[in-house]
Design a protein around this nucleic acid. Structure first.
Lengths: 246, 246
DNA sequence: CGTAGTTTTGATGTCAGTCAAAATGTGTGG
DNA sequence: CCACACATTTTGACTGACATCAAAACTACG
């Protein structure tokens, strides 16, 4: 998903209102833009940072999508979440200065590099930025709570439906279609994220297809009946998004 | 768990280094203390705030323990977490100004009331406070990631062992015994938190008892073999705590 | 076109949920 | 202090949803 051109700066970025510049005055956005470094694009499966790395910068998704996960001593992984444009990655590192998870590109994408030391300075100078920074941290917490709810007590079908619905909502909030989109992650990633096996994910997608609620063609997903999908979920995810039809 | 006396202020609070004052100069802590209001103690099952309430203040646990949970339209709940002394509650509200979960006292306890507007002002004046605030938000995110890992792919036995171990670590970090403590929450709360049923929780506790790893007497838990407990968990939770024997 | 990776489909097993009842604990009023 | 009622926890028998194991079908890429 191409959105903001690589090299485009905060004042001109269409994602500004979903990102750090939200609520800032024009000149403040310019100040922010001056500290943001544009990173080169990342290719599929390229790592943005590794668990345990010292954190010098936070990264905002400019285009593409990313997966973050925690690796365990035994080699197993748990996918923590997926990041779409406008979202800030690396917020887990602010506690101790090291990333607690690894993040990898799911497709070709670009990120904005926000040096932490400069960001902290700027937060002191611009109250609005400090507020927005806390908003974004809080948003991550709320999103994580949604994930806890998702993993807590739901059946495989509910998990699958919720996953599709959350993506739909997030794409919609970005100005994309909320009924037709591509899954940038593999079945394995979905399964791992939802605490299921790939076989179960495959079967649930097939089931939802058979019921006519969605149409799946490899990575491509089309939602044919949003209401039925919501009926399966029935528990309203309080995802960050601004415009939710509910 | 009595810890800091009600009425005691930040500069004298034993929990200061786990809480907002961490890293501040003495005079800055005094500034902070001036905006903190002492709330009356809460009794068991008394609500601190309700999901959907407008957030005027954040609350730091002074003594006792709390449970926060999300209620769904169908009446079901998902426990999001448990709060112990020194922890800050309500961070989920910073995004939109409303609490996204309810929080209730598990036992008699007291909290510090930190008015949000004053806190924001103070963060602008005291860079160290702004940094610490972000650390605490980040800590919450890391803790939530641990919960996602916990709920993701673990068996009932692993969940139960991890739960006991995390409590052990947190009590230890507070200066309490990490081998003998009371569960302030009911079985129902543990089950709901772990995505299990009370029957399964009961059986797993019985199983761990039978193996001699722990001794359970109602709310009381004694860990007889910390290494065996860790062996069951095997996936190291990266919980916030400072001093971890591992 | 051939190989490797990914996804789907099928058959079987198992862990935790459900239902039911007993045991234990907690609180209240006599 | 005891008796009774109610809540919580434990134990047991059975069931079912999802995991596991295995193989086939589909895709992608050189």
């Amino acid at each position: 998903m191409e959105f903001a051109k690589t090299g485009m700066s905060c004042p001109d970025c269409r994602l500004a209102d979903l990102c750090l510049p939200y609520g800032l005055h024009v000149n403040e956005v310019q100040q922010l833009a001056r500290i943001v470094k544009n990173k080169r694009p990342l290719k599929t499966d390229e790592y943005l940072y590794l668990q345990g790395d010292e954190c010098q910068s936070l990264y905002a998704v400019k285009s593409g999508s990313f997966r973050s996960f925690i690796a365990h001593a035994d080699g197993s992984e748990q996918t923590i979440g997926f990041y779409l444009p406008g979202e800030l990655m690396g917020l887990d590192s602010l506690q101790h200065g090291r990333f607690t998870c690894s993040t990898v590109a799911l497709e070709t994408g670009a990120v904005c590099d926000v040096p932490l030391s400069r960001l902290n300075e700027l937060c002191s100078e611009i109250p609005g930025l400090q507020i927005q920074m806390m908003r974004m941290l809080s948003k991550e917490i709320v999103a994580d709570h949604d994930k806890i709810v998702l993993l807590g007590h739901r059946t495989a079908k509910e998990k699958m439906a919720t996953f599709i619905l959350m993506l739909s909502i997030r794409y919609g909030a970005l100005g994309f279609s909320n009924t037709v989109f591509n899954l940038s992650m593999r079945r394995q990633d979905i399964a791992n994220f939802l605490g299921l096996t790939i076989e179960t994910v495959s079967r649930q997608l097939a089931e939802l297809s058979k019921q006519g609620i969605i149409t799946v063609k490899q990575r491509g997903v089309q939602i044919n009946n949003l209401d039925l999908l919501k009926a399966i979920v029935d528990i309203v995810p309080q995802t960050d998004c601004i415009s939710d039809s509910r």
